[in-house]
Write a protein that binds this DNA or RNA. Structure first.
Length: 263
DNA sequence: ATGTCTTAAGTTTTAAGA
């Protein structure tokens, strides 16, 4: 099974890029974040015609929004609300006869890494704590599951262009990394990408729009993740960031992350 | 401190979020 996660930063604006990725990568499942579209304006038709007709979409006006697109039938879907907000940051579906797939868009957290003065950072930490609590009580590491998404945290030193310069920058602060570690422990999640790309090797999935030449500067962060539970650990065959897609015309600031699994 | 991009509001420009 091939699964891809991609923060698309407007699915309507970048529908041609989504279709291109589907054609080139032929994933069984594509998980999108930041679709920025209400459910009734989501491009269900074109994506279904391309072959990904089984869809689970959560959306709101202007912000956030997540979707699971599948070639295989899906069932037992859920879209959970976190922190008491209806803000379209999570969907989950069980692939017919296969694993349960969770797709998350974790809050970015604003600029100041202090929950006492920055409500957005407080929301991010609360969201991660609620993820830990919910996954830990409602889900079991014994079941085959995949968790993907823009988790908005780059946990390892090699997940950022400069560990020292980003220690106090939201996405790489110790308090966030600690919170993400707890989420990871909640159901025995294994970082599938780092099973393939050694932790010693630098790897990024996001590059700011603000750089003059994003590729030359290469000041990236690995914010997008694919995790699996222990029953799937032995089946991780391949993982890569599709860095090329960051250079496509009118690109998202995130690149897709692909993982191949034997189920 | 800065840089760029997207959406939404409501009108040709601003604000918020990332």
């Amino acid at each position: 099974m091939r699964i891809v996660t991609w923060n698309i930063n407007s699915v309507r604006l970048r529908l041609p890029l989504v279709l291109r990725l589907l054609q080139e990568m032929q994933p069984d499942v594509l998980c999108l974040q930041e679709t920025k579209a209400l459910v009734d304006v989501f491009p269900t038709g074109p994506l279904a015609e391309a072959g990904w007709s089984h869809q689970l979409v959560a959306g709101m006006k202007g912000y956030n929004g997540v979707a699971i697109l599948s070639r295989l039938p899906i069932e037992e879907t859920v879209s959970r609300e976190f922190c008491g907000r209806t803000d379209a940051r999570h969907v989950a579906a069980r692939i017919d006869g296969g694993p349960e797939v969770h797709n998350f868009y974790v809050p970015a957290g604003g600029d100041v890494p202090d929950p006492a003065v920055n409500d957005k950072f407080a929301h991010k930490l609360d969201f991660l704590a609620e993820m830990t609590q919910w996954l830990g009580t409602e889900r079991s590491p014994d079941h085959p599951m995949i968790l993907v998404g823009d988790l908005n945290i780059a946990p390892l030193e090699t997940d950022v262009w400069s560990h020292k310069q980003l220690l106090n920058v939201v996405s790489h602060t110790p308090v966030e990394v600690e919170a993400l570690d707890k989420v990871q422990a909640s159901a025995g999640w294994i970082d599938a990408v780092r099973k393939i790309v050694p932790p010693e090797e630098r790897l990024y999935s996001w590059w700011s729009y603000r750089a003059k030449d994003w590729s030359a500067a290469d000041k990236g962060r690995r914010l997008d993740h694919v995790w699996v539970t222990p029953p799937l650990d032995g089946g991780i065959r391949h993982a890569e960031v599709i860095r090329d897609a960051r250079g496509w015309e009118k690109a998202s600031d995130h690149a897709p992350v692909v993982v191949d699994l034997d189920l």
